[in-house]
C-alpha cells in the first residue's frame, strides 16, 4: 500500500495575523493567543494526497511541527480523511527557520517504516518561504519537484507530474520515493464533514518530543537554525496621501481629474 506523508504547518489565522509580533529577545515570531489554522496552501497538498488515496489504496500520515495547540490542526486533518497524525512538539523545536524545520521533519519521517512520497504545500502563509519541501527532500535523499500543478501519473514506481514555471509548465518524470510541493491551483481542497469528524474519534495523534527523534538540541529549533533575525527597521513612506472626499460620484470625478492633471491618465 502506498504510504504518503503530508507535512502541514499550523499557522496563525490570517484574519488575526496583525497581532503577531517579533520577540525582542529571541527575535523569533511570537504567536500568543492567535488561533492556529491549517496553512491554506498545505490544504492543497493534503487534498492531492486524499485524491490519490481515493483512486487506489494508500495510507496517509500527517506530520506537523508546532506548539501543543497545533494538535487541533492535526485533528482537523484526521477529520478530513488522514489516517494517522503526528505532532512534533517540544520547546526545543521553537524558533526554527526553514532549515531546522526541514531537518526536524526529516528526523520524524525517517522514523516511519517506509514512505513512498511526501507532499508539502507550495509555501507557508506566515513565513512565506518555500524551502521546507526541497530541503526536506535533500535530507531524505529523495528527489523533489516543486510547484506541482497536476499529477498526471501517480501510484507506481515512476510518477509523471506537471510543475509550474514562468508562463508555462514542465512535464517531469520522477522515480519514487520523492517529495512534491503542490500549488494552490492543483485542486480545490475539500471541506470538513460531520462523518469525517466522527471517524477521526478512532484515529490517534502521536506526539513526538525531542528525545523521540534522537537528535541533539543544538540541531533543532532556534539553535539549529543557520539564519537569524537581526533587526527590524520601520519603513517610512515617502508619499503623503490625500483622501478624496465627497459623494461616491464626486469621488470618482475628482480622482479622474487628479490623475489626468498629474499626466498619468490621458
Amino acid at each position: 500500500m502506498l504510504s504518503i506523508v503530508v507535512c502541514v504547518k499550523a499557522v496563525p489565522d490570517l484574519d488575526e495575523a496583525d497581532k503577531i509580533r517579533i520577540d525582542p529577545d529571541t527575535k523569533a515570531l511570537t504567536r500568543h493567543d492567535i488561533p492556529l489554522v491549517i496553512n491554506p496552501l498545505d490544504r492543497n497538498a493534503l487534498e492531492a494526497a486524499l485524491q490519490i488515496k481515493e483512486k487506489g489504496e494508500a495510507h496517509i500520515t500527517i506530520i506537523s511541527m508546532g506548539p501543543p495547540s497545533a494538535g487541533n490542526v492535526v485533528k482537523e486533518c484526521l477529520a478530513l480523511g488522514v489516517d494517522q497524525g503526528i505532532l512534533l512538539s517540544d520547546p526545543a523545536f521553537a524558533g526554527a527557520d526553514a532549515f531546522a524545520t526541514a531537518y526536524t521533519l526529516y528526523k520524524a519521517i525517517d522514523k516511519l517504516d517506509s514512505v513512498d512520497c511526501v507532499f508539502c504545500g507550495r509555501a507557508s502563509s506566515d513565513g512565506a518561504t518555500e524551502w521546507v519541501g526541497p530541503e526536506l527532500a535533500t535530507f531524505l535523499r529523495m528527489p523533489v519537484v516543486t510547484m506541482v500543478r497536476e499529477f498526471v501519473e501517480a501510484g507506481g514506481n515512476s510518477w509523471k507530474v506537471k510543475a509550474d514555471i514562468e508562463d508555462g509548465y514542465r512535464l517531469v518524470q520522477v522515480e519514487m520515493p520523492a517529495v512534491f510541493t503542490v500549488t494552490h491551483t492543483a485542486n480545490t481542497p475539500r471541506t470538513l464533514s460531520f462523518s469525517g469528524i466522527i471517524k477521526a474519534r478512532k484515529k490517534e495523534i502521536t506526539t513526538w518530543i525531542l528525545d523521540d527523534l534522537g537528535v541533539a538540541e543544538e540541531s533543532v529549533g532556534l539553535k539549529g537554525s543557520p539564519t537569524i533575525v537581526s533587526d527590524l527597521t520601520v519603513v517610512e513612506s515617502k508619499r503623503t496621501c490625500q483622501i478624496i472626499e465627497g459623494t461616491l460620484e464626486e469621488k470618482a470625478d475628482i480622482l479622474i481629474n487628479k490623475l489626468i492633471s498629474s499626466g498619468v491618465l490621458l
Partner: peptide
C-alpha cells in the same frame, strides 16, 4: 527568485548545510 532558483536554492542550501533567505529586498555587507 525564478521558478528554477526557488527549487535549486533550498536543495543547495540543504546539501551544504547552510542558511537561505527568501526573496530579499536588499542585500548589504554589515
Amino acid at each position: 527568485s525564478t521558478f528554477i532558483g526557488r527549487e535549486l536554492a533550498p536543495i543547495i542550501a540543504a546539501k551544504l548545510g547552510t542558511g537561505l533567505t527568501a526573496h530579499c529586498m536588499d542585500l548589504f555587507i554589515n
